[in-house]
């Protein structure tokens, strides 16, 4: 087991607001980690900081041995595509979708590496196996789908590529409990051979027993097992 994501001393925020405070987080290959916290305690900002979408950030973020953290204070999103290419699959919160693309094209847009672009048909099939309801809608523009279906597309888009770290930001937010559970099941089906997954969620009960460990997030800090027992052992 190796560390696939290692965050050290990460601080991030927007303007004069500091949301993430000196955060450390280590995630091993093959792990499924749940991050639980209330609204406004920095879950989304943590994801955005990893992706380089915050206004400013400091600290080191290492994905699979590659440093992607940088100290910068302007141009949110300038380097996001480069960061994403290091192997980040972000399944964002809410309606970050392309209204005019069809479901098929939308899924394809997630395949950003040349290999995954080549294998996109096969991948698409796999995802449609997981999300049965999308099969019928494959040529429908995403803008016409319902909220749950949109979320499925958005998660499916994240699953299209062979990412190293999957980050799902509140996959069940605003959905009927049953649909939300189904989506979570789908997330758990992703094969994590050389990768890891972080799921941010407000509802602890949904994650309990399904992920390897649950980390609490409070006021920009992590509470609980910020690194798995294994790496703690290595440290001592």
């Amino acid at each position: 087991m190796s560390k696939i994501l290692e965050i050290k001393g990460l601080s991030a925020g927007y303007g004069s607001l500091r949301v993430i405070h000196d955060l450390d987080l280590i995630i091993e290959t093959g792990e499924r980690v749940g991050i639980v916290g209330l609204n406004g305690h920095g879950k989304t900002t943590l994801f955005y900081a990893i992706a380089g979408l915050t206004h400013w950030q400091r600290g080191s973020i290492i994905i699979d041995g590659k440093q992607i953290g940088r100290t910068r204070s302007q141009g949110p999103g300038r380097y996001t595509h480069l960061v994403v290419k290091e192997g980040l699959a972000i399944m964002p919160q809410g309606d970050e979708i392309f209204h005019g693309l069809t479901v098929e094209e939308h899924l394809d847009s997630g395949a950003f590496t040349p290999e995954s672009w080549k294998n996109r048909k096969q991948k698409r099939e796999e995802i449609l196996e997981i999300f049965e309801p999308l099969k019928k809608l494959i040529h429908t523009p995403v803008g016409r789908l319902s909220g749950g279906e949109r979320r499925m597309v958005s998660i499916g888009r994240g699953m299209m590529s062979e990412a190293k770290v999957y980050m799902a930001d509140e996959p069940t937010l605003g959905l009927a409990p049953k649909i939300g559970k189904g989506l979570l099941e789908a997330l758990l089906k992703i094969d994590l051979k050389n990768s890891a997954m972080i799921i941010a969620e407000q509802n602890v009960a949904l994650l309990e027993g399904k992920v390897d460990r649950i980390i609490g997030m409070h006021a920009g800090k992590l509470k609980g097992e910020a690194s798995s027992s294994l790496s703690m052992g290595l440290k001592n």
């Binding site: 996001t80 964002p92 392309f98 209204h99 005019g100 693309l101 847009s109």
Partner: peptide
């Protein structure tokens, strides 16, 4: 596809890895 995606939602486009 990247161009069309960027036409529709530039923010989401950068999340998907479109520069």
């Amino acid at each position: 596809l990247e161009i069309r995606a960027m036409m529709m939602n530039p923010h989401a486009a950068s999340i998907v890895g479109i520069g």
